[in-house]
Design a protein around this nucleic acid. Sequence first.
RNA 1: GCGGACGUAGCUCAGUCGGUAGAGCGCCGGUUUGUGGUACCGGUUGUCGCGGGUUCGAUCCCCGUCGUUCGCCCCA
Length: 416
Amino acid sequence: MSVVKPVRGTHDLIGEDSRRHQHVIQVAKKVTSLYGFEEWITPVFEETAVFARSLGETSDVVSKEMYCFEDRGGDSLTLRPEGTAGICRALVTNGLTQSLPQKAFYTGPMFRYERPQKGRYRQFHQIGAELLGTSTPFADAEMIAMGYHILRELGIADDVVLELNTLGDIASRKAWREALISYFQAFQSQLSEDSRNRLEKNPLRILDSKSPEDRALLANAPALKDHMTPEAQTFWDQLRVALDQFKIPFKENPYIVRGLDYYSHTVFEFVTTKLGAQGTVLAGGRYEGLVEEMGGPSVPSIGWAAGVERLALLLEESPKVAAPVVIIPLSNEVHDVAFSALQVLRYDGIYAEIAYKGNLRKQMERANKQNAPLALLIGDDEAQKQVVQVKDLISGEQAEVAITDLVTHCKMKLAK
RNA sequence: GCGGACGUAGCUCAGUCGGUAGAGCGCCGGUUUGUGGUACCGGUUGUCGCGGGUUCGAUCCCCGUCGUUCGCCCCA
């Protein structure tokens, strides 16, 4: 019989992988709660239109990476490729546009049909946060500070650089975009093929091209700063001052434009060099029209998302496995005492395991492998006297303890 | 979607200039009777990713395929 395989680009998280993954999510939940964020749990699939409209029809994610399917009722549904669109949809459907601002944290699987690589999967997991309904640059700074806080808490802040840019407001961007098109049109023949295709649709993307022929042209390309409206300029200035006040180090990078179409003003990426081509670890920006796309009012917002797998890969060390107190009954006849000891410990919140097979020596070996701090030996004599031998596996000391004192004694031992 | 590398025990990997394969780790058991961490002894496992071709014979060569991985692209 042939062995079934996991689907390409999916992976199982078991043991150490699971612990690392879980650790990232727990830290994110803890940190975001310090900033007033609550978890929103939204569906893994939505109507296709939710993503198609919001991410930009021409973006790669929409045009070639989505898992779309027709359900039995004939509706076109899509497994979410990212989290922001669903959050905006939920904001509108739940009438929360009446009570802004809203702070949403989310986590869960996302789906993109891409060529898998390390740190890049077809089903992957993100943590993300959206601050909906604020238009001040201080909100942007705080959101970035929150992202940084998580990286710091995970112990990877030093492996990562914050790259920051502004796309200006709509008016600035429009003027700049036109300037870019006319500039690059003059050099059309020198552009890479990809960039020639992008020229009309999304000329901003040429800016983060890696191809040398494009890069050569970038130096003299029109800069946004020459097209910024005074309002957009103020926003950008205030953001940078605020980041300094939050003491978040950043590097300005005028070439960050981001792949999803909905951004304006602030865009940023926390980038590492330790993951090869998959260096972006936490990224986001400000967006304005998204909630309107979902049929709501204009709700200026700022958000970011981070790849859980990528963060887990960067973790220096794996979270430890919990170590149990191990109860070793020396015969089936003492199960009476052993099981009640087991249950008393667990009811008191102590992680306890019981050994069923092997001789005492083997059981001790196993307890040692599990890193057990204590082994509780119960033989016929002990059962008779209603005591257990409590052996401290670190010091090697052993003491006879009455069953009635077991929990207190174990707690005292474990506290050390 | 494009280009390159790789695919051998649970894990990390060696190997066969083509004659069906090994090490370390792990796992199991033992070194006498109710006591671990060290040491010693013994044992354990593979359709050598899958399919086809060349060959007397392929895990080793060729082609395809699937998967992983690096870069591009894209992105978290």
